[in-house]
């Protein structure tokens, strides 16, 4: 029976891995498509944009937007702090906090750092590579969990010689 679980675990891990690969490859292909002019539509899009002022910064987006973003950031921060006062299970807490943080990060990148107003090709050159590289680091976690299982206090008596707590 144990082997079924091993097999499932392996399948999931391999799935995650290949998902990462395909995701990375897809982002890379998107970049290559633009670079290699494989996709004529995108090229036309790029060409069309050249007629417009090249830099979003010179247009006036209205500062009101930025005040709203600032307010939203403060609000989300208060929400996060509020979560610390009600005692949620750790995993739910982690997922909620990371979700809110990603939202805040998106607001900062999009509005304060102006990414929303840059050309699409600029965003594609910068963001996918960063995200894929950071996500890749997730591969270290199986080892973190394993070393936890190896610790003396976590090894159940009857499995002491197999080394892995099931």
């Amino acid at each position: 029976m144990e082997y079924v679980w091993y097999f499932l675990l392996f399948a999931v891990l391999a799935g995650v891995w290949f998902g990462l690969i395909v995701g990375g490859a897809a982002s890379w292909c998107a970049l290559c498509a633009i670079v290699g002019r494989a996709n004529k539509d995108i090229v036309a899009f790029l060409r069309g944009e050249l007629a417009k002022p090249s830099d979003g910064a010179h247009k006036d987006h209205g500062m009101a937007e930025n005040y709203v973003v600032w307010g939203a950031l403060l609000f989300f921060t208060l929400l996060e702090v509020g979560l610390a006062y009600i005692h949620l299970p750790l995993l739910i807490m982690l997922v909620t906090l990371l979700g809110l943080s990603l939202l805040k990060a998106a607001l900062i990148i999009g509005f304060f750092m102006h990414m929303k107003f840059e050309k699409r090709s600029f965003a594609i050159s910068i963001i996918p590579a960063t995200v894929v590289t950071i996500l890749l680091l997730n591969v270290i976690f199986p080892d973190g969990l394993r070393s936890n299982a190896f610790r003396e206090e976590n090894v159940p008596e009857e499995h002491a010689d197999s080394g892995e707590g099931h």
Binding site: L13, A14, G24, V132, T133, L136, V139, D143
Partner: peptide, 20 residues
């Protein structure tokens, strides 16, 4: 970027990750 683990096969890393 996807293959760094092959330097660590005998370091005690998770064997499932090692296969990948």
């Amino acid at each position: 970027f996807f293959v760094w683990g092959h330097h660590m096969f005998q370091s005690g890393m998770s064997p499932y990750v090692a296969v990948a």
